[in-house]
Design a binder for these strands. Structure first.
Length: 711
DNA sequence: TTAGGGTTAG
């Protein structure tokens, strides 16, 4: 069956196609991959014992669904909740049963109350009798399914589903799909898999629900497999199916499969569907094809708010923050009403651009347009203020949030950690636990780095050990790196090295880098050399590692080894780029190369730089930690960071009232074509400053690299 | 017939 040709002319109904499968298990053993070309990807090839691979399914018993029968007649009723319910008490009206009240509550989205009422009902004798003569029928169960989806509670799902089974409720296709959806939406993907597997009859909605659920659960590979199987079993797919399959492609980051889906969509005449267009934009941008995403966006007949959001998020995802901001203003001019998604995206872009002016406008717009309580946008705001070092503002936004989740806590704890307020980070972490929030690996990364940064040695170890024993979270490489840093700060280099060897996985570059940093500080050349050599072996393309190794060899007088390193560099075609900094003054970018003397006032600039550095050192600033050993003349990232810091000082971008340090915290945006650092953000006394930003003239929107011209 | 689809935060 060729998707691109004949199969598209097969019988296809957009409203749904019933697919009767006599023995699903036997059919699942058949070869998959009927879509033209999909077989070529290793991901979708090879062993497959079952459609779910090796995932174990929780036992729900078999034969959950008896043979369908005619649906019970819905209970008629008035959808007005009534004043007695508003008081939180049960209705006493003689003709208003509990079932009806449950349905009414759900209609008004009062899910929790509806489920509490159902709990009372189900605890009564018989279960199926609602006390007032009510029979829990399809319409009530349907409402309860909506209530469970609304609360997202696993306990509620179990309660409702158990009641359905115990009372002998007879499921029809509609209710089978609704129950499947209930499990999927509440994150019970293993149970949902089994329910789907045990379905004796499935229609297009069942397939779509399951595929979408797998995508939601992040099991993209299985979602795509199921999509392929659907094609084989049903020869049909709707726009909804493609939307989910595109999400799976986006999750996998496989542009080729996404392109094939795009081709299918066009041939099926679905390319004007708004949902499909948005899914395509998202898929292309997440697969790194931003120009194709832009093309799909341009072709959208009606550009919806989701379309705008998706393309803006796409540009932001690839570091094109200025372009994303331009699009945001274009969106504003187009008259499309922004939603809470828009503000969340924009606030994050502002955080990255270090643009307080735009951030303030976005914050104001968020509140003005009624999204001031949105958890995602507020979390983005907390992160933004943290990045700006405005911890009071961050805390203020956080405290006013009506609902919080682990991500919100992580943003704040991480903020305190990054600003050296280790004790505050630890206090917030303790409060998070006390309030019943479940920490995750990001939380521990934040709190461990806080302990490391602030020298809270005992606390750090206590939390690190609690990860495994109390919270059942397996420490990852970054957690180990934090602990290595923690030990390193105490000068316990042998213990740090022992931790690397004892890790239950192969040491990563981050772990060796943490050890190397500690070795620099404590002048342990032997161990430092070992760590640098490990890094050199693990990241052979990273020029920075060669520099470190070169520095170590030069400092110990090992010129022969140093020469070998330089030779290796030459063989590999790696070149040491001169350090370069940009700074924007009154919208005019200025560029300075390392040791650059081309500026007409360079003598004055360097004199001023030296003066300022002396002044900074007097106040306690220490530029160490960047290089243990003398420079070798040619520089790359490490040297350029130091260069940028000096430049920041030279242009008066810092005030160091109490001898604070300058620290690069934002990482680098590196050109994928030429591996040049095109953007660098430096934090200077709590302020975030874009100290180097070549992105607007480095790349064009079609992705071509302009570094040849620029350099 | 109902039910199933796209974008956001650490």
């Amino acid at each position: 069956m060729e998707v691109g040709t004949s199969c598209l002319h097969k019988k296809y109904t957009s409203n749904g196609l019933s697919c009767c499968i006599v023995d699903p298990r036997s059919s699942w053993k058949r070869k998959i991959g009927t879509l033209s070309g999909f077989e070529q990807y290793p991901l979708f090839r090879g062993r497959r014992n079952s459609i779910w691979g090796t995932v174990r399914c929780a036992s729900l018993g078999s034969g959950l669904y008896p043979k369908p029968r005619r649906r019970p007649t819905p209970i008629p009723g008035n959808f007005d909740v009534g004043p007695d319910l508003d008081d939180g008490r049960l209705a006493k009206s003689a003709n208003s049963g509990l079932c009806q009240q449950i349905e009414n509550l759900v209609f008004f989205r009062r899910y929790r109350e509806a489920l509490e009422l159902f709990e009372i009902l189900s605890s009564r004798d018989g279960g199926s009798d609602g006390g007032g003569g009510d029979v829990v029928g399809l319409s009530t169960y349907d409402s309860l399914v909506s209530a469970c989806i609304g609360t997202g509670s696993v306990g509620d799902v179990k309660m409702v589903f158990r009641h359905m089974l115990e009372t002998g409720f007879e499921f029809d296709q509609y209710m089978r799909n609704r129950v499947l959806l209930m499990h999927v939406k509440c994150g019970m993907i293993i149970d949902a898999r089994q329910l789907f597997e045990e379905m004796q009859e499935r229609n297009i909605v069942s397939w779509n629900t399951m595929i979408s659920g797998l995508v939601d659960a992040g099991v993209y590979e299985d979602a795509f497999r199921l999509f392929l199987l659907m094609w084989e079993e049903c020869s049909a797919a709707s726009a909804r199916t493609f939307a989910s399959a595109l999400r799976a492609s986006a999750g996998l980051g496989i542009a080729l499969s996404g392109r094939q889906l795009h081709s299918c969509v066009v041939k099926m005449g679905l390319s004007t569907d708004t949902f499909i267009s948005c899914a395509l934009i998202d898929m292309y941008s997440k697969c790194g094809c931003i120009s194709e995403a832009q093309w799909v966006f341009d072709e959208m007949p009606e550009k919806t708010v989701v379309g705008w959001n998706t393309i803006i998020a796409g540009y932001a995802l690839h570091g094109y923050s200025e372009e994303a901001l331009d699009l945001y203003y274009e969106m504003h001019d187009s008259g499309v009403k922004m939603d809470h998604f828009t503000y969340s995206i924009i606030i994050r872009i502002c955080a990255r651009l270090a643009s307080l002016e735009h951030a303030k406008q976005a914050h104001a717009g968020l509140v003005r347009n009624g999204f001031g309580l949105d958890i995602v946008a507020n979390t983005a705001l907390v992160d933004l203020y943290c990045k700006w070092g405005r911890m009071d503002d961050a805390r203020n936004v956080f405290d006013k949030m009506p609902k919080k989740n682990a991500i919100s806590w992580n943003a704040l704890i991480g903020g305190y950690a990054n600003h050296g307020q280790g004790n505050e980070a630890v206090n917030m972490f303790e409060r998070m636990l006390k309030e019943g929030f479940v920490p995750n690996h990001v939380t521990f990364l934040a709190v461990l780095s806080a302990c490391s940064y602030s020298g809270l040695f005992d606390k750090g170890w206590q939390y690190f050990e609690s990860m495994t024993h109390k919270h059942k979270i397996k420490p990852r490489a970054m957690h180990y790196a934090c602990m290595i840093e923690l030990l390193g700060r105490e000068g316990l280099l042998d213990d740090a090295f022992a931790l690397i060897r004892e890790a239950p996985f192969s040491p990563t570059a981050n772990m060796w880098a943490a050890l190397l940093t500690a070795c620099r500080v404590h002048k342990n050349l032997e161990l430092g050399k070992l760590a640098a050599e490990k890094l050199y072996g693990m990241q052979p393309e990273k020029v920075g590692n060669y520099i470190v190794l070169l520095n170590i060899y030069y400092s110990t007088g090992r010129s022969a080894e140093a020469a070998k390193v330089l030779e290796t560099l030459k063989k590999r075609g790696l070149r040491l780029l001169p350090a370069c900094s940009w700074i924007e003054i009154k919208k005019q970018p200025y560029r300075f190369l390392f040791a650059d003397k081309s500026h007409p006032e360079s003598d004055e600039i360097y004199r001023r730089l030296d003066e300022l550095m002396e002044h900074l050192v007097e106040m306690g600033y220490s530029p160490n930690g960047k290089s243990l050993l003398p420079d070798v003349g040619a520089h790359e990232e490490q040297a350029s960071i130091y260069h940028s810091e000096k430049l920041a000082v030279a242009f008066g971008l810092t005030s160091t009232p109490n001898g604070t340090s300058l620290q690069v915290v934002q990482g680098h945006h590196i050109c994928q074509d030429c591996h040049t650092v095109i953007k660098l953000i430096t934090r200077v006394t709590g302020r975030y400053i874009v100290i180097r930003d070549a992105s607007r003239f480095h790349h064009f929107r079609d992705g071509s690299c302009s570094c040849g011209d620029y350099w």
